[in-house]
């Protein structure tokens, strides 16, 4: 519980640093730090599979993608001239409403909360009998709810096609420009 509180505070500090940082390299590295802190919080919250994915995808692949993009573009942010009072008011207002909404949530970590009374108990009780997989997250992901996973792979496939089309066009145009000069 205490370690969780410390990690959450660190997360908040890193996020404020991300807002204030003007160098995009700094932003990317801080985003990577943020993902690792998030993975640590997830381990504390017993979500070990999610933590592993967050560490490899959030801190690994995302950072590589962002750095690859920075290789192709300018890496400092200009000081924006747009007004930021109104967005601040909206953010703080929405945040206040959301915090007010959390007041009625069940207390943290109680086993008799509504979320634990639904199908989750059945998954934990029957996973060995139904699937033979001791890791419940794996058995739900790949067995009980494998259609969700199929949908997820469709999304990744679509995004992959989109990225390929966008970057392929860019490269072809670059080549024709080379031909002209």
């Amino acid at each position: 519980m205490l370690i969780n509180t410390v990690l959450m505070t660190l997360l908040a500090v890193v996020t404020i640093a991300i807002v204030r940082q003007r160098s995009l390299f700094g932003v990317v590295i801080l985003a990577s730090v943020y993902s690792f802190l998030m993975a640590s919080v997830l381990v504390v919250l017993d979500a070990v599979d999610v933590a592993m994915t967050e560490a490899s995808v959030g801190a690994g692949i995302s950072t590589v993608l962002l750095l690859a993009t920075l290789h192709l573009i300018k890496t400092t942010e200009i000081r924006s001239v747009r007004p930021h009072l109104m967005p601040l008011v909206i953010s703080v207002g929405t945040g206040a409403i959301l915090v007010w909404g959390t007041l009625v949530l069940p207390p943290f970590g109680t086993p008799d909360a509504v979320i634990h009374q639904h199908v989750a108990a059945r998954y934990v009780a029957d996973t060995i009998k139904d699937t033979g997989v001791p890791n419940v997250v794996t058995s739900v992901l790949a067995d009980y709810r494998s259609y969700d996973t199929l949908g997820e792979t469709t999304v990744i496939f679509t995004a992959g096609i989109g990225v390929m089309l966008l970057l392929h066009r860019a490269r072809r145009r670059g080549r024709s420009n080379d031909g002209e000069t």
Partner: peptide, 15 residues
Amino acid sequence: PLPHVLILTAIVVGV
């Protein structure tokens, strides 16, 4: 385990 499964999907869609 149920939120863990949902969020695994969300992480991958996020990237």
